[in-house]
């Protein structure tokens, strides 16, 4: 319990940290920014309310669930202009996006939608996990070679659209390696399957539909 509690705090911190960095430094800038994005406190509160609503509606299931993003939301049919936040969460079990509509002014979650096999951002925690898994894989390190230690790792979620694709329904991350001069390494082509906890390396650009599954597993 202590461990999972600590893990939750860490996840929240990791999700909030990047947005905290881009917020303004002055109260005026913070007030201006609040027109475009929820404040850190609002995000934290919206996440907590969404988590509770997901639990109450029986959508939690087992396995990892990440709070991905909190964004300002509008409802044209709303009578009053309350502070509305849309929380997006991702549940590994079933490859499910959970959208929670949070009314911060009223302090209620007005709606929760669960959508299977759609696209969901990567959380900072998942990015760090994928990066660590890839950069501790010997073959990846070997192919990065002289650039190891200099590269900037970028992540893109890879979405399998075809139900018979072995990666369908998996949380798969493609990693890109940017070199200091500004270009990207053409090789290695690295995917991290976070659902199966595997690193996949494509030997070369594949020209079949099931390109990724044919990659070498490590």
């Amino acid at each position: 319990m202590y461990r999972s509690h600590f893990f939750s705090i860490l996840l929240t911190f990791l999700v909030l940290a990047p947005s905290a960095v881009v917020r303004g430094q002055t109260p005026e800038e913070d007030a201006r920014e609040a027109f475009f994005t929820p404040t850190a406190a609002e995000t934290s509160r919206a996440f907590a309310m969404a988590e509770q609503a997901i639990q109450e509606r029986g959508l939690r299931a087992t396995g990892p669930l990440y709070n991905i993003s909190a964004e300002l939301h509008r409802d044209k049919n709303a009578v009053t202009r309350n502070r509305l936040v849309l929380v997006t969460s991702y549940r590994y079990s079933g490859d499910v996006a959970i959208l929670s509509y949070v009314d911060l002014t009223k302090g209620v979650v007005t709606r929760v939608d669960a959508i299977s096999h759609t696209n969901v951002h990567l959380s900072e925690a998942e990015y760090l996990l994928a990066k660590e898994k890839a950069l501790t894989t010997p073959k990846v390190r070997q192919q990065i070679g002289e650039y190891l230690g200099q590269i900037q790792v970028e992540a893109m979620v890879s979405h399998a659209a075809y139900e018979k694709d072995p990666l369908f329904g998996h949380r798969v991350v493609r990693l890109l390696f940017k070199v200091p001069s500004g270009g990207y390494l053409a090789q290695p082509i690295v995917f991290v399957d976070l659902t199966a906890n595997q690193v996949l390396i494509d030997p070369e650009p594949n020209h079949s539909h099931a390109a990724v599954p044919s990659a070498q597993k490590h």
């Binding site: 969901v120 990567l122 979405h159 493609r174 594949n206 539909h209």
Partner: peptide, 21 residues
């Protein structure tokens, strides 16, 4: 609402807005 970038061989297929932060 999204930007979809599918590659001719069938993969990859990226959703550049909803798939990424």
């Amino acid at each position: 609402a999204d930007i979809f970038a599918p590659y001719d061989p069938g993969t990859p297929r990226y959703y550049d807005l909803t798939g990424f932060n």
